[in-house]
Structures are given as C-alpha cells and as structure tokens.
C-alpha cells in the first residue's frame, strides 16, 4: 500500500492545520457534581472527562503511606471511544498510560500535606483522536485544582511528532498512526519542569530538539486556556474587590 501524503505541497496537513498549529481546544472545570473535583476537555476530536476524589482514607489499609498521600490514577477508554468497539477491560496500553499520568501529576501535588490519605484521579476518554494522554493530563490537573488539593503548579500536556519527515505540533489520530514519530510532553509551566517525556520513532538530534521545543511552546498556549477555564469557573467575570469596599 502506498503511503498517503500527510502534508501537502503548501505545507497544510490533512485536517487543514499548519505545522505549528494546535487543534481547537475547549475546557470546562467542575463538570461533575459528585466528584470532589472535575474537568472536561475537548482537544480536537478528543473528548475526555477527568474526575478527582479525595484526599480520603486509604483502602486497603496496608497501602497507607505514613508521611504522604498516595496518588492513584486510572486512564480508561470507553468502549465507544474508537471506531471498533474497545474491550472495556484495562489493556496493557491503558495500564501504562495510567502509570505515566500518575508520574506526570505527582510532582505538582504537595503529597506531604495529606499524610495517610489517597487521592484518586480518573481519566475517562469518551472519544479518542490521538494525543489523549496529554489532554488527559491537562484535564486532570484542572480537576485537582478544582478539588482544592495543594499544588505547586498546574501540569500541562502537549505533543509533537514527525510526519512526512517534518516536525509538527499536536498529532491527530491519523498522523499518529501513519507518521514516523510521536512525542508527548507534560510539564509545569511556571516551574519549568518536565514531568513526562515519551518518544517513539527515530529522530535526528536537530529534530528532537525542534520537536521538544515545539511541544513546550504548544503547552504554554494550552496553559493559558487552562488558566482561563479555572478563573471562569471560580470567579466568573467578576473582579477582585478593592480593600475599601470590604471594610464593613
């Protein structure tokens, strides 16, 4: 089978984006009433809900950490999230992604503030379109902030990769499958610390550098949206009151 071209002669990708453009993104905080914290994200065709429970008591008891919280993450894809029905049982891939999401979020949370407790993060992919782990991380960190858990910084995820030999930002499903490399990155934008970096495909040194910087740049754009989503949930469009007004 001949491979189709993923970028045309004008440098436009299959879905009409330029090499350094993100897909349309929408975020919402506090979508679920019953969770302690929650967020919903639409990232291109991805639709993902993240929910946080806790801190709460740990079960089973032997997993308790005496000096810090225990973070549990579950990344799960709904059976209807892909073209062909996905078996709802956790797959190898989902177990692995759950682990990397946990490790991407953990550095942001001040675990020592909640000793002997568990914090649970559920990432539910309702519709999947490539880059769902980074979108899931972005949504989970909003959900954690919504739950009021002490955090050093938000965590934002973004991916880049190589298609048709060119470094591009934010691969969608087709580009991910038919392209030659994919690099999901998660980081804390204010602290400037990387919490997740995965790479597949073969990169030259130059390409690696370019892809990495591109993912960070994309992440910073997503961070601004994250920020807006949090502010609009908690403060709407009100302004902080000046001090005089409050002295009653």
């Amino acid at each position: 089978m001949e491979k189709r071209k993923l970028i045309d002669e004008n440098g436009i990708r299959l879905d009409g984006r330029k090499w350094n453009e993100l897909r349309p993104i929408r975020m919402e905080v506090g979508t679920l009433k019953n969770a302690d914290g929650s967020a919903y994200i639409e990232f291109g065709k991805n639709k993902i809900v993240a929910a946080v429970y806790g801190p709460k008591e740990v079960h089973p008891k032997h997993e308790v950490l005496p000096d810090r919280a225990l973070l549990r993450c579950r990344y799960h894809m709904a059976p209807f999230s892909v073209d062909e029905r996905k078996n709802p049982a956790p797959s190898r891939r989902e177990i692995e992604i759950s682990k990397v999401i946990r490790e991407a979020l953990e550095p942001a949370i001040i675990m020592e503030d909640y000793p002997r407790t568990a914090i649970e993060v559920y990432v539910e992919v309702l519709q999947s379109d490539g880059g769902s782990r980074v979108a899931g991380i972005t949504a989970s960190s909003l959900a954690l902030a919504d739950a009021g858990i002490n955090m050093r910084d938000l965590v934002v995820g973004c991916s880049s990769g190589i298609i048709d030999g060119q470094v591009v930002l934010d691969l969608n499903d087709i580009e991910d499958k038919e392209g030659s490399g994919d690099m999901p990155v998660a980081f804390m934008p204010n602290l400037n610390l990387i919490t997740l970096l995965q790479v597949d495909g073969i990169y030259t040194k130059e390409q690696f550098k370019q892809a990495f910087e591109l993912a960070l740049e994309g992440g910073r754009k997503i961070y601004r949206m994250q920020r807006e989503a949090l502010i609009s949930k908690f403060f709407g469009n009100t302004q902080p009151a000046s001090a005089e007004e409050d002295e009653e």
Binding site: A145, N150, L154
Partner: peptide, 30 residues
C-alpha cells in the same frame, strides 16, 4: 490566583496555602 501563580515578590509574612521560593510567594490553591 490559581496554583503556581506568583502572589507577590519581596519579603512578607505568609499564611497557609502559600509556598515561598526564594523571594517569591506562590499560590497552592485557587
């Protein structure tokens, strides 16, 4: 503020939900 925001720079007494990094005061909560 949201987590990670710099509330102020300088020398202050700080309350709960605030972390000091060098001379920056960082918010830990919304």
């Amino acid at each position: 503020v949201i987590p990670g925001d710099v509330i102020a720079v300088g020398d202050y007494r700080s309350g709960s939900y605030i972390e000091r990094r060098d001379n920056q005061y960082i918010a830990l909560r919304v």
